[in-house]
Nucleic acid binder design. Structure first.
Lengths: 231, 231, 231, 231
DNA sequence: AATGAATGAGCTTTCATTCAT
DNA sequence: AATGAATGAAAGCTCATTCAT
């Protein structure tokens, strides 16, 4: 299953000891990094302990000194990726002056992450079958990150009133679908600008705010300006 | 799309010879049905050829007379499920008098299908790792089904102008996310009415049409009437 | 554990197809024979499936077509050995004209078996930890074989009255201990005659019958005569 | 034999430093006690060094400072148990006024020990495969303990003349078999009185002495009296 | 058209033992 | 005197696939 021979198994992880790190901790970290790396190329079933330990440059038995089994390390990898995606989105949206701008920047950040980690994106989705709880946790954490900002924006009228959680899930879903279709499937470096613009028009309508700033036209205009196109 | 295959999913593999069906074709059909059945309970890796052939009542060797391998039959099962979901959605939307109503009915149909086939839903998602091409085909066929109707609705102004394909993907994504979150995760019999209403408010904004009929308020009103609540 | 390198693993079992035996049955029999053979040299834990299948000349996977696991085949081997020992004892005692003579011949038969299968003797005792039920079954079957004859002999006064089962267990125990001490430990070809005679004196007293024939002196006399010694 | 080691078997490894005991000796003792404890619950193969060192509260590596391997410590544990059983039997028989009474008390003591240490009983028998020499040593020491008393009793006519060693082995065997059958298998608190009496009738005959005191009837009478039954 | 016995590579996991610190 | 991280061989077992019948 999966694409087992697209790339050869990476032989070793470069072991750069982190400062103040004990021997045991370093080995654990090496294993975690190796697992992430192996899961880039192989799916859960094909990502064997043998491949992981080989990539980490340790003996097979060593694995069980740090993890109780395959699912255990998988869960940790998922948790780490979750942290990374959320970080990428939050950082991208930082400094936005409106909810809509925050969405635009956040989506752009998410797509950038998707492009930079096309295989890790696969890992997250795989969790649905390997570790449902890890998957739930992933989506819920992202949705929760949306909750308060959307609630606040609803209070100011920037976003149409409603249940912030349902809106959060809807926005998240659109981003994921567009990312899957126009980045992962097309193995593209980015969502084509016209698709992004079109998507933002839809997102704008989903938010349904009343302020001028948030209208479809205004957004398209802003974006074009940013790209240096003429309005 | 005609009404293909109106038989309900068989609970067990009962071999009722179809008229004019040769022996070989019947065996092939038995295997396909058995695979579908087994994949309801087991995921791809646990659904062994042995389980499938046992369920079909044939010897293991027979399997390779009709399918080139495990992935082969999986692809065929996915294709069949795809046919069924699309059929369920199309049938549900039949007779709608507006695009918005068609969406509402279509989503309801999709949720009903999700509720009735919670495990089959999992099968489709699993295709992402087992057979990426099957998965693409699945989503693309659904999206294509949206294309013409949305294009037409844009022409009449019922839906805001734009790229019908991107809107199709966005709508599909929202439905899937809500179905996953409120049916599959909650193991619920249906999406709670208030969630459905809230989602429809968002969908309505996504369509962004100009006709009165399509406004949020109008839709909520219609729905309440249907439920016998006072407006 | 155990003496792992006394003898090399036997490479193959000579496969003499038994008449009217189907392919599957023959493979099963080959595995059973190979297991018995391997268990002669190695103890339960060291008698790996790999060694067994190699000795049988089949692939490892084939093993699981016929046995559910290691314990399964072990139980069958124990059961077969049990059948063999009881057969050896019964055959040996056949034709005895008194209970005491039957005992003498039976013990001699048991010792002969012990001598011919010193390692199989070990296998039986190993069952105590590997498969307690198999072990119980083994001893109980032997004890049961004693029951009726002893009961009958008690009725005729040939053996002192009492509980035949407790006497059966006591006789069995003495035989086993003497066999262990003077055959297995000494790797001897037989229990030394003077030990055997001494043991028979004790056995004679244990039976405690009243008939002249059964007295210690009479037995020793008979035995000496048989050996051609002068009385 | 003096009264060595009157401390009860420790339920847990509590490290009470013994007077004048150096640190190294204490660690060694802790390991030995931990091994005994672990072997009560697990059999040889499942009693891992990890479990033993954990129970002893020392690091795994420390084990090899005191023992050359797993078999080494096992042998020492067996030797200690051997000391304990013999001690239990000797103590029980102390004060007997005849050989027969000594047997009766000795058997009772052995059964009591068996009942109190059902798992340790298993440990001894396991030695047969783990460490044949330890096992031989065990039985030989017990048999030797019988030797002199039986020899003396034969001299006085209390026991029928013969080879004391063969009689010793026979008696030992009967005790072990009855203990296994009616205590270990039945998980009973004691050998049922009627079984014990019946066994003593057999033992009495095995000893085959001439003095009145030793007759079956006399023994049964004594026993009944002890139990307060009327004769 | 069908059988089903046989394959063998590959998996996860355990554990006695070593050795640098 | 003690540590505990690391080892690596070996185990039992599964399963997609083949092929002689």
């Amino acid at each position: 299953m999966g694409p087992p021979d697209r790339r050869p198994t990476p032989d070793r992880t470069v072991d750069v000891p982190v400062r103040n790190e004990k021997k045991g901790e370093r080995t654990r970290r090496k294993l975690l990094e190796a697992a992430e790396q192996v899961l880039v190329t192989y799916d859960y079933h094909d990502a064997s302990i043998a491949k992981i330990t080989e990539a980490a440059g340790v003996a097979q038995g060593t694995f069980y000194l740090y993890f109780s089994g395959k699912k255990d390390i998988f869960d940790e990898v998922v948790a780490e990726l979750n942290r990374k995606v959320r970080h990428a989105m939050t950082e991208a949206a930082r400094g936005a002056t409106s909810r809509l701008e925050a969405e635009r920047l956040g989506f752009a950040g998410f797509f950038r992450f998707t492009r930079e980690h096309p295989a890790l994106y696969r890992v997250i989705r795989q969790a649905e079958f390997v570790s449902p709880s890890a998957l739930r946790n992933h989506y819920e954490k992202i949705a929760e990150g949306y909750f308060t900002p959307l609630q606040d924006a609803m209070a100011t009228g920037e976003v149409a009133p409603g249940d912030p959680m349902i809106l959060a899930w809807s926005l998240m879903a659109v981003g994921e679908a567009i990312g899957m279709r126009w980045i992962v499937w097309d193995e593209a470096k980015e969502v084509p600008p016209e698709v992004f613009d079109e998507m933002m028009k839809i997102i704008t309508r989903m938010l349904g705010g009343s302020s001028t700033e948030g209208t479809t036209e205004a957004v398209v205009e802003q974006t074009k300006r940013r790209r240096g196109e003429k309005v």
